[in-house]
Structures are given as C-alpha cells and as structure tokens.
Design a protein around this nucleic acid. Structure first.
Lengths: 225, 225
DNA sequence: ACAATAAATTAATATTAAATTAACATCCAG
DNA sequence: CTGGATGTTAATTTAATATTAATTTATTGT
C-alpha cells in the first residue's frame, strides 16, 4: 500500500522529531527537512501529498518557500499547510495569500494535528473551504513573548499571574491543588500566606472573565473552556 | 502483598539517592537508572508501576524516553511522571503531550513527593482520563478533573461526596461498613454524628439516581450497577 | 542611588458552599 | 406494635474561598 507522503519542514529538530514521530505512527510516509531551500528540492523529488511548512525559518522562510513551490509547475498544486507558533501574527500571513491550504498553530497536540492533516488530505478531492485555525479553548499563552491571547486580543500579565495561568493551562480541566500550585509557581522553600493564591486567581478572573477558572472547594482550581 | 515498584530515572546521582531513599523508606520497591536508554530496558524487565523520569538528561531526554516507553506494547500503559527543575518550561512539555501522567518539579520536599506519588498510583485503579468508552448506565470518576461521569454527562461533586463515591466505586459490589467509610473518607480522629454518612449518601442518590447505592441494613453500603 | 511605578503579599472582613447536626419520619425484623 | 436502624428535610455551623484595601517588596528609569 502506498501511504500518503508528507514533507515536514521546520528549522527546529525538536519539532521535526515530535511531529514526525506522531505522523509516522499514524501511517504517513514522512520526509523531513530543516530548511526551505532543501524542502523545495525534496518536494520536486518525492512529490509529497502534503507539505507542512514552518512560517518562521532562517534564510528562506515558509512564505517564500511556499511561493517557490507554487512556481514550479511539477509540484505547484501540492497541498501546503503553514505551521506557526501560537501568537505569531498570522493575519499578515493570511493577508499575503501565499497560497497555503491550511494554517496550523504550534504547539499542537498529536491527536489534533493528525485530525487536521487528515482533514486537509480529505479536502484534496472535493474543494472545500480553507480552514483557519479551529482552536481548542480560546485562551492561549505565548511564553516567549510572555503574552496571553484571549480571542485574538493580547493581554500582558505580571509574572506570578502568568505562571499561575500557564500552570492551569498546561492541563485544562485538571484540578491543581494549592500545594501543587505553590510548589510549582512559588517553589518549595518560599512560604507565603494563605490568601496569596486567591488574590492571584482574583486578578486572573478579573482580566479573563470569571468563567475560565473554576474553584473546587477543598481541592483546588482548574481551568476550563 | 508485594510492594509497588517505582523506576527512578535521573542523570544526577545525588537526586537519585535523595529521592530513592525517601521512596524506599515509604515502602516502595525502587529501582534506579541514570540514563533514558537503560531505563527503557529496565522498564521492560521489571515492569514498574510508576516511572519517575527526569526531563533534562543527556543523550536521550525524558520526553524521548517517555515516547519510547509508550511505543513498547508490553509497558506502554505504565504510569509516568516527569521530574523537572523548577523554572523549566513546563507548559511546553505538557503541551507536547508526550503522554505523561503527572509533572513534578524539583527540588521537592520528601513528604510532598510521597503524597504526589501516592496520588498518581491511586489514580491507576480509580477513574481514568477523558471518557472515551462510556457504557450505558455506568458511573465513572476522574480524580484528576474531580468529575463524575454518568452516561457521558459530567457532574461536579463536593469533596466529601466525591471521596465517598470514589470509595464505594473502588470496589463495586463490596459492602463498606460505616466504620470503614468514616475511617477512609473522614480519617481516624474526626468524630461526626450518626447521620452524617446518611446525608451524604442521600446527596449521592439524589444526583446519581437511587439504584446505584444499596443499603445493607446493619452492615453498610455498597455500589452496584 | 533615588524616586516612581508596578507587582506581590498580607490583612481584615465578607461571602458562600459544604458539612454537619437536629428533628422528625419511615421502614422492617422480631 | 415496637425499637433500632436508616431515611429525609431543613436549619445551622464550619471551613474554605472571595474580596478589597493596605502594605511591603521588586523593578524601572533617571
């Protein structure tokens, strides 16, 4: 059986490995590359069904690479999906209309990635609409920029609030006890008063809206969308 | 009864010794390893109940090791908890969804470590993650999310009710006497009145439906489907 | 190094959900 | 019928968290 071929392009080996592993496990025939230039050559050679292309890359970025590919007659109709770090300004990318077939934000959970990939490949036959990022829950954080996104809006948070939110967000739905929160946001030795966590939760709720963080009395707090 | 086996993996001998000592003292059967590769082999051999895995290790890091383990049919369902230095980017790790069951930051106090380990191991028997295969008329609990699932519906329970239900559910069909219930839900010293348990049972029956919890007069209560 | 500003923490009190008790009802074995 | 056991409902108490403001502690810019 000839599996569907995916060309995965990202300059970070970690990402390559992580995504590659998950796609391979799903039965796809995965080729990888860490540069845009190389990717174009590879594409010509192996004729992939789908190219996953990181937007931000040194030298030749995803957009250029995409345009290059669209220029080569032989492979110009290959499906291309952009990968971008959550929080990067994709409106610009979308505005450039570089000719991508989908747009996927990182980090992404394996299951979600796979279902997106399946969806794109399914679209190949019947021309469905282009998907722009269906999110899982509408609050996101960008650790690098230290920003929180709420429905597209960007919000800036002080350190402790950010860390607390990041923790809750690291596993939505999971209840984090006060003990665990203290341990992981404040650290072992530091002793802070009983109401400190409450106050930070308050601040978060103030900025995000009440319904995101739920209290389980006697147990802890959890994030839910 | 043979003790529960823990495989402890960290590249720093000091950490190994410190954590190992404390876990052994608690009665766990501890095996240690300083490399991810070796850990996978050891895991195959001894089939631990839980693997504590340092995220940052030379050669093969915790995440890779975790993925490896998840790949070996024989041990793929072993509980795995990540250990990481505080301040490392846990959201990223969690986001990678490498399949860990918990996330513990170092340094950690012995007592807290032990209680975390107990919690993880307890989860094994109790309710597991997201309700995938719900059976009709069945009740499940998810300790991590502190939720009860009844025919796919999510129900939120207060602490004592949750713990009581969890106890009954831990061995469906078994009759739990009032003494045992008090002992395990309330704890040794606490003295509460005669009707306290009844009232909690009432609340449970109210929310779940009468037929799930059966009274054995003069003996106790049991859960049955 | 200093003031200005923001963040984090504590303090004091209010609020609320949860747990318990109380008061009475019912059930059922003997 | 009767008495111990459990059921039920509402009232009460308690424990946990929420809230707001005041205070302390960091951070920043000059």
């Amino acid at each position: 059986m000839s599996n569907e071929k995916i060309l995965l392009v990202d300059d970070e080996p970690d990402i390559i490995e992580f995504l590659g592993y998950n796609l391979t496990k799903e039965g796809y025939d995965v080729t990888t590359s860490t540069s845009g230039k190389e990717a174009v050559e590879l594409a010509k050679k192996i004729k992939p069904d789908l190219i996953l292309l990181d937007v931000m890359m040194p030298e030749m970025d995803g957009i250029e690479t995409c345009q290059e590919i669209r220029n080569v007659a032989d492979i110009k109709n290959t499906l291309i999906a952009f990968l971008s770090a959550r929080g990067e300004d994709y409106s610009q990318v979308a505005g450039l209309d570089a000719g991508a077939d989908d747009y996927i934000t990182k980090p992404i959970k394996p299951r979600l990635l796979v279902s997106r990939v399946k969806a794109i490949l399914r679209r190949k036959s019947g021309g469905e609409e282009v998907g722009v990022d269906e999110q899982e829950g509408d609050i996101k954080i960008d650790r690098e920029k230290y920003l929180v996104y709420k429905e597209g809006e960007e919000l800036s948070f002080p350190k402790k609030e950010f860390e607390l939110l990041a923790l809750l967000l690291s596993k939505p739905g999971k209840v984090f006890t006060r003990e665990v929160i203290l341990e992981s946001v404040w650290g072992g030795e530091v002793v802070v008063g009983d109401r400190t966590i409450d106050v930070h939760i308050r601040k978060l709720r103030e900025k995000l809206g009440d319904h995101y963080i739920k209290t389980i009395k006697g147990v802890g707090y959890k994030f839910e969308s």
